[in-house]
Design a protein around this nucleic acid. Structure first.
Length: 629
RNA sequence: GCCCACAUAGCUCAGUCGGUAGAGCACAUUCUUGGUAAGAAUGAGGUCAUCGGUUCAAGUCCGAUUGUGGGCUCCA
């Protein structure tokens, strides 16, 4: 079963080249973690913002306002309006708050720390119910900003600047003047729930970004602009790759257009070839299965909220599949398995459907129907370490083929509530850890973060904008082999329980494409780009020669389009450029005469004239090497 | 689902104080036949998301609905 773990907190972004905190266990604030300047700056900005908000909304209830990656936020409960609806921030409020923050900054008010008892704190925040709840929590033993439990009672402190005193561990900058007035900006308002729980009150959140100076702020705003420009939904439309239609087709359901489907085909073809070479067998399974299947697998117990309502067929209930595993299990069970059959590596590009709340749907990144490059490994215990090694290598090499170079690996170990024998947990966790070590790549361990059915490795890639994305996952499953009573006959003639490992390398192919589009910014490597070559005749005198060149290139296996519209060459080049087509072959009278093509690259570089054969060699090399030009 | 913002031509967007619909791109036709990121003219294209309300009059104001974007533990 694929599960989504949360991205680790990243506080120490000192530049736009972001870096990971390796493991959550090393970042406990109570154990001497160094709070960097950004932490203090952003945390202080949050307090200043809270002061400005309270001045404007005296009845507001304050909650929490932590520093976050690139900035800070603060959540407020503004109460309700006369008509019962929630009072909220308007864009004008944001402007006024930001202006007032600069005044407070100019006041150079010191941040003064005070250590108080729980009762003193309660008196101080008597009219702040959220703070009272926090104080109760602190008295009982705290939780740090990474969500890690802190044992025992915690020192309770407040920080005060000017008129505003907040329950806070700190630390802060010395005084408000240390916050650069032109280094921060309030970005947006958003709704959020107290403690992230939708059953608790809805709060109003203001997000801000804060940096050491104007230049850094500008760099960050530019980065945000770059993120916007690379948005896969925007590029998907511009490059005609895919679309969605919520009103008629439905939200979270992707329509792959010819060019997008072609890219997907190319990517899948490559991955499938590698799977076959890697000893995987492809299978195909249906989209629906009977309720008893999902009852036995445990999905209806543990995953029901992710599944759609049943379909009734002749009095029997069928469910749309949210995962492929139970079907693969039945292929395994279709006959008696011998140790000689193992390992079995069963792969399927399986399309699954999962319920996602409407508000969480997002382009290709979060959808309701998607295809996984799913596989299940069934192996004997002694084969397991080798299989783990292989699958990890496979995953990394596949991701490298798609241009990802930076990886971050996470091992999630046994949680409190779990199934399976301890010996299996021991073996599998060790095998995963050994494989991680052998990979030579940075990895972290999330103790207790595994699924109830087994430990797992998640692979995050870092994209061209330094953003982490979880793609691959390798998960043990001690649950399904038990529930479906999977066995194999060992050399000793008795029945044994095989290990079962789920793995998806690209994960969701939809999501993978979303990441890929943003990673490349639409400038896909030659092997993957839907149209590799655009032929641009200068006048229609050359149309015939151009068509002849196109045929030659097609015979050579290149994906070519001919622009014989009656526009000018400049316009044709511009169009090809906007479509980010790697090679433009400009053909005028001179080229037709000499039986050559004039090659222009999408980066603006001109390679001059060459024979068609020479160009074919050049392009084929780029395809084979998977290079991006 | 919940909070905020938004919804005008295929796309990107303008539309003032409420007075009856605009631009650029794309598309079609014609002219143009050119040397490395936009040649020109003409034309077609809109029930201003949907439904309801206020008004002499609604793209514009109000409400509901549908949909989109941002956000909903990065937890003192």
């Amino acid at each position: 079963m694929t599960s989504f773990i949360k991205t680790p907190s990243i506080f120490n972004s000192t530049s736009h080249r972001r870096s990971f905190i390796m493991s959550s266990s090393q970042s406990n604030g109570q154990n001497g973690q160094q709070y960097d300047d950004y932490y203090k700056l952003r945390h202080s900005a949050a307090h200043v913002m809270a002061q400005a908000v309270l001045e404007r909304f005296p009845d507001a209830k304050i909650t929490i306002g932590p520093p976050i990656k690139d900035g800070f936020y603060y959540d407020f409960d503004l109460g309700r309006k006369e008509d019962g609806s929630l009072r909220t921030f308007s864009p004008e409020d944001l402007d006024a708050i930001e202006k007032r923050m600069r005044q407070i900054i100019a006041g150079r008010f010191p941040f003064e720390k005070r250590v108080v008892s729980a009762d003193e704190a309660r008196a101080l925040f008597a009219d702040q119910p959220y703070k009272l709840e926090l104080i109760d929590g602190l008295e009982a033993g705290g939780v740090d900003e990474y969500g890690e439990k802190i044992e025992g009672p915690v020192e309770i402190s407040t920080y005060k600047q000017d008129t505003f005193e907040d329950l806070c561990r700190g630390p802060h900058v010395e005084h408000t003047g240390k916050i650069p007035p032109d280094g921060f900006k309030l970005l947006s308002v958003a709704g959020s729930y107290w403690r992230g729980d939708e059953n608790r009150p809805m709060l109003q959140r203001i997000y801000g970004t804060a940096w050491k100076n104007k230049k850094e702020l500008k760099a960050h705003l530019d980065w945000l602009e770059e993120v916007r420009k690379r948005d896969h939904r925007r590029l998907g439309k511009e490059l005609d790759l895919f679309s969605t239609n919520h009103e008629m087709v439905g939200g979270g359901l992707i329509l792959w257009h010819p060019k997008g489907a072609l890219m997907r085909h190319l990517a899948e073809e490559h991955a499938k070839k590698l799977h076959l070479e890697g000893g995987y067998d492809f299978v195909n399974t249906p989209h629906i299965g009977r309720a008893t299947l999902w009852e036995t697998s445990g999905h209806l117990d543990f995953y029901r909220e992710g599944m759609y309502a049943p379909i009734e067929i002749e009095g029997q209930e069928y469910y749309l599949k949210p995962m492929n595993c139970p079907f693969h299990v039945f292929i395994y069970k279709s006959r008696v398995r011998s140790y000689r059959d193992l390992p079995i590596r069963m792969a399927e590009w399986g399309t699954v459907y999962r319920f996602e709340r409407s508000g969480t749907l997002h382009g290709l990144m979060r959808v309701r129907g998607f295809t996984q490059d799913d596989a299940h490994l069934f192996c004997a215990p002694e084969q397991m370490p080798t299989e783990i090694d292989k699958v990890l290598d496979f995953s990394l090499s596949l991701l490298r083929d798609f241009g990802f170079e930076q990886f971050q690996l996470y091992l999630s170990t046994r949680p409190e509530k779990r199934v399976g024998e301890e010996a299996k947990w021991d073996d599998s966790e060790e095998a995963l850890l050994e494989a991680l070590k052998r990979s030579g790549l940075p990895y972290g361990v999330n103790e207790g973060d595994g699924a109830f059915y087994g430990p797992k490795i998640d692979i995050y890639v870092t994209d061209a904008l330094d953003r982490p994305w979880q793609l691959s996952t390798i998960q043990f499953d001690f649950n399904l082999p038990e529930r479906f009573d999977l066995t194999y006959v060992g050399a000793d003639g008795v029945q044994h329980r095989p290990y079962m490992i789920h793995r998806a390398l690209m994960g969701s192919i939809e999501r993978f494409f979303g990441v890929l589009i943003e990673h490349y910014g639409g400038i896909f490597p030659v092997w993957l780009t839907p149209v590799q070559v655009k032929i641009i005749p200068i006048t229609d005198e050359q149309n015939e020669y151009a068509a002849q060149v196109m045929e030659q290139l097609k015979l050579a296996g290149l994906r070519v389009e001919l622009d014989n519209s009656d526009g000018r060459m400049n316009a044709k080049i511009r169009n090809a450029q906007l479509q980010k087509i790697p090679y433009m072959l400009v053909i005028g009278g001179r080229e037709a005469e000499a039986d050559v093509v004039n090659v222009r690259l999408r980066n603006g570089k001109r390679l001059g004239t060459m024979s068609v054969d020479a160009f074919v060699t050049l392009a084929q090399e780029a395809v084979a090497e998977r290079i991006a030009i």
